[in-house]
Design a binder for these strands. Structure first.
Lengths: 345, 345
DNA sequence: ATTTAGCACTCCCGGACCAAGAGTGCTAAC
DNA sequence: GTTAGCACTCTTGGTCCGGGAGTGCTAAAT
């Protein structure tokens, strides 16, 4: 809290931010005066505003326009002034993921959550899943997919399922696959796939079973593929919502930058990565976020857990002028919902 | 070919369409005259243009603007006038899906194809996969996913893999799962999942094995889930490319309609469904396509096969003013590529 | 010593108006 | 049948202007 940041000033800042959030227009002294019940005249407000501008909380788009909060202004608002709105009953109802079909795969669950969140918040919503090669395994299985093909199926502790096809193994019998499965599952639990692989490799040196080759092959393909896909899954939902935001609607260049960013896994990943490790909500305002191309959007995100380990992160992307009082509880609730749902799995 | 559609008129139509495709601006008589090597004066061209307009091939945005081809004009161009450009070497190289990691799942393969196609064509690209409950099975397997959970994994003949989680089966042994698998795989091949289910149900009436419940449960969950997810998978890539098209760049309403449509599985499905059943390329121009909201885009799509059966369809979505001579071969090639790649699986 | 009213000033925005340019349709000549 | 010529239409971009919104400053009021 800077010098001269007295109570009245923060009040005014709050009103300005809130008005700006709802109108998307620079806000003038007269408006604020009215909003504060005429307790202070426009002229006084103007003085306060001038102070706030000097401190970096506000800017004027041009002389003789109202003020607009800066990133710093928003930051201060969020850190000190924000009153969270609790969720309305209807909102909670709409987020009812439990209504999903029994047995829905984890990916689909997460994607649905994202979609619902996007609709409720009227923003674009994004989910990332942690890198598959860093997730711990729950179980690994091989199964015959065709005469000369074997499918490697890995179930992660988060409930996510990964699979790869292994070619050209026509001569292995069902029994042998069985044995491999039993063997794998003894070792697999709690390891990552790459870890499992090195573990097996060292074991293999000792005993020389007939199915060495298959298992070796499977693990190599599996581990390499997972390492290769590098980043985890990324889902973006509700892209169209950003077109509803007046700040983006006009400027096609900006839109293009944002949409392009949405198509790059790595960018989205960088954006939400920070939130993944923490369950607390993270808000990056404009240039605070780690992607230069998205210097004019805000990201509100939170990680979610599977048991003790962070498996992903869900959030919203929208204009800096977001309704944080609504959006933050929404994201928080959704992330918690995911955590509890995965807890039951 | 309408009355009075002489050679010269078609020539003029071709030039107009092609010029319009490359410039996105109404084209005037002077331009065409020059393009035809001054063989005809602008005045003559104007007469021909007036004829073409009367026949419905052209329109004027306003008096004293050049002409723009109508949907009918484009249709005629595509059906009778189009000269396909063969693909450049570099283009083929860029579509090199074979370079993908060995064992990449079918979904990922298809998505990559879509992405590459989108980049090459500078349009949005879309893939649909046929409804999972209509695809024939190659094999079905249950596997233990956790102490009280079983994972149902179904490999389709197209190489697509579906999975669902089945809850609360702690008391079944690995051996029993084995038996179920053996039993299932005897029956499964070539059936759809719902078919398999009714088949099993009738069998179950006869013998009462201990693992009835699990199998029944698995099939019910599987079949219902698949029926429920209704449509197949849909992937959209290269959305940002539509912002490069001048006809969409300005009009935000239109953009929003298109982006929203992209988020609705069912819409995309309706759009590409027709193409799925045929290997020949399908071109829907503007209002020809079955989605009202997308009355101002064209769709170029083609189905692809897995062996004898159509499993999906890939295509491009863009402005009516697309470079069909380039885009059609591209889509065709990509679809064929997918067909051959799936052939090897 | 604040607060406020008053006022001059600045800047944006929308509408009116105009000139240039592009393209047409028609007519009359080739 | 083709084309040159010409009058006409319509868009586009630029300029100009007036109104409105909002400010900063100053001087009066509390």
């Amino acid at each position: 809290m800077g010098p001269g940041m007295d109570d009245r000033a923060t009040q005014v800042l709050r009103y300005i931010v809130e008005d700006y959030i709802s109108t998307a227009e620079p806000v003038g002294s007269r408006t604020i005066s009215k909003k504060m019940g005429q307790a202070l005249s426009p002229a006084t407000i103007r003085n306060i505003m001038a102070d706030l501008e000097e401190m970096g909380f506000l800017v004027q788009p041009h002389t003789s326009a109202g003020r607009v909060p800066t990133g710093i202004g928003f930051r201060y608002y969020i850190d000190h002034l924000l009153l969270r709105r609790s969720l309305a009953r209807g909102e909670v109802d709409q987020l009812n993921l439990a209504a999903l079909e029994e047995g829905t795969p984890a990916d689909e669950l997460v994607r649905q959550a994202s979609r619902l969140l996007a609709n409720l918040a009227c923003q674009a919503s994004v989910v990332i899943l942690s890198r598959p090669d860093q997730q711990k395994l729950r179980s690994v299985n091989l199964m015959r997919a065709a005469t000369d093909k074997i499918l490697l199926v890995a179930v992660m502790q988060g409930g996510h399922v990964q699979h790869r096809l292994i070619d050209g193994e026509p001569d292995i019998t069902g029994d042998e696959i069985e044995k491999i499965n039993a063997y794998l599952n003894d070792l697999a639990e709690g390891l990552t796939l790459p870890q499992l692989r090195v573990r097996i490799l060292s074991e293999l040196r000792k005993e020389k079973a007939r199915y060495d080759r298959v298992m070796h092959r499977a693990l190599t393909v599996g581990a390499r593929a997972l390492a290769d896909s590098g980043l985890g899954e990324v889902f973006v939902e509700g892209r169209a919502n950003i077109l509803d935001q007046p700040e983006f609607a006009e400027d096609v260049q900006r839109l293009k930058r944002i949409l392009r960013a949405f198509e790059e896994k790595s960018v989205i990943f960088r954006l939400l990565d920070r939130a993944m490790s923490s369950q607390a909500i993270q808000v990056s305002i404009g240039s605070e976020n780690p992607v230069e191309d998205l210097g004019d959007v805000s990201v509100v995100a939170s990680g979610y857990l599977q048991g003790p380990s962070a498996v992903g992160s869900i959030g919203l992307i929208g204009p800096v002028r977001m309704d944080y009082s609504r959006v933050i509880p929404l994201v928080e609730y959704t992330a918690n919902l995911l955590t509890t749902m995965f807890g039951q799995r």
